[in-house]
Design a protein around this nucleic acid. Structure first.
Lengths: 225, 225
DNA sequence: ATCGATCTCCCCCAAAAGGAGGAGATGCGT
DNA sequence: ACGCATCTCCTCCTTTTGGGGGAGATCGAT
């Protein structure tokens, strides 16, 4: 079964270059090319490709916005690899949030581009090595040094942890009381003791702590925003 | 300049296999092999390799713990690629937190293993495609749906955004005032208008909002925990 | 020149939060 | 049986927060 690919770049020459690299493989077919974001959306709609190689800087509609719209329409059917010359964090994060499955730089060796397409078509994802490094760095710091923070966390009693989690969802003492089926006074004392155990001043700092410690990732409830 | 590599795995046969694949390249030298975490730490200390291929499941000291200790000692000098048969989230996250630069599965094609070593030695990082996908997924949900939230965010004036960021670090109105060189009364009015624009009730919810919207990742300051 | 937005700061007031300290009930391990 | 931790709730008090509403200064656009 052949992989159906769409190549999007505002420079026809670049577009053709990538297309030729891909077509050189027997089982990859470039079913369309597009030069703007709007054309890309059109192409995605009419051709329903497996993979789209998408440049970012383009007239009319940039590649990130186009990616978001295409994925909103196609769901899981089509996957997008962002292919660009630059890699500022700003772009990368927007791309990943838009749902891109890959983010590679244009200086990638042809063979790697081909395998990137295969990997992504196969349900995987792949980022340029330098980007992967940054993403890992970000992830690691977000997930916290673990040590000190987690240490303080387990000084809390079970109930206090529950209260902290509720607190971290932005609930007031009264709301926490209702959520946990206890009195408002009780919530106040839990909050007080949890603040003092964690050496925090107020609930706002407790929310910060909850996020920094990764506590919010456990059981994750929709904050309703 | 040749790349100096250490291969760590409790199964001698597997170890030898990887070593042979790497040595087949002219510019890669396997300077040591280790069968346990403790041996790995020793080998890292005495050989100071560029890259260590590390299995996770090992007697005495597992690969994740060994990785953490080696990186704590060597700083940036040595980089670690985790090479394992399984990829449960638990392992992946611990590995990344321990500071690993790569996480690949043992079913990786030999050619890819070689390029993984090169990429990592070169300062990049690389994860198995399926893991990259999960990491992206995690990142994207953490960074929030973006749409609605970002929309509300740009209803704020510049100053209000600054106040929100300060707020999201757990500062009190008074502290924000000092941080921004303005009066406490001014902070109060900024906070009030920002809460009403974002349709939030209190500063705790504002902190939640800041984290969910990804605002805290811009300019990222150490919360001091 | 005037309007609108923003930033700055003020007053007054009510609600919420946080600290100190106490106290009854439960359950758990020794 | 006893101590210990936890969970529950209380009172009294102070500080912080948030809302309403107003006002002067600056600045850019019309």
């Amino acid at each position: 079964m052949t992989l159906r690919v769409v190549v999007v770049d505002d420079q026809a020459l670049v577009r053709r270059g990538f297309a030729m690299v891909l077509e050189h493989e027997g089982d990859i077919e470039v079913v369309a090319e597009a030069g703007t974001g709007l054309e890309a959306i059109d192409a995605a709609r009419t051709h329903r490709p497996d993979v789209i190689l998408m440049d970012i800087r383009m007239p009319e509609l940039d590649g990130l916005e186009a990616t978001a719209r295409i994925l909103a329409e196609s769901g899981e059917a089509t996957r997008v690899i962002i292919l660009t010359t630059f890699d500022p964090d700003e772009y990368v994060y927007r791309a990943l949030r838009a749902g891109a499955s890959g983010f590679v730089l244009k200086d990638i060796p042809p063979a790697d581009l081909v395998s990137a397409v295969r990997v992504v078509a196969d349900g995987g994802a792949l980022l340029a090595p330098s980007i992967t490094r940054r993403l890992i760095g970000r992830f690691a710091t977000q997930s916290g040094p673990g040590g000190d923070i987690a240490e303080r966390l387990d000084r809390l009693t079970g109930r206090e942890r529950e209260v902290l989690q509720a607190l971290a969802r932005g609930l007031s003492n009264h709301e926490i009381a209702e959520a946990l089926f206890i009195g408002a006074a009780t919530v106040k004392s839990h909050v007080s003791s949890l603040l003092s155990k964690l050496e925090l001043r107020d609930r706002a700092q407790a929310v910060v702590f909850a996020y920094e410690s990764g506590l919010t990732k456990v059981g994750d409830k929709d904050p309703g925003f």
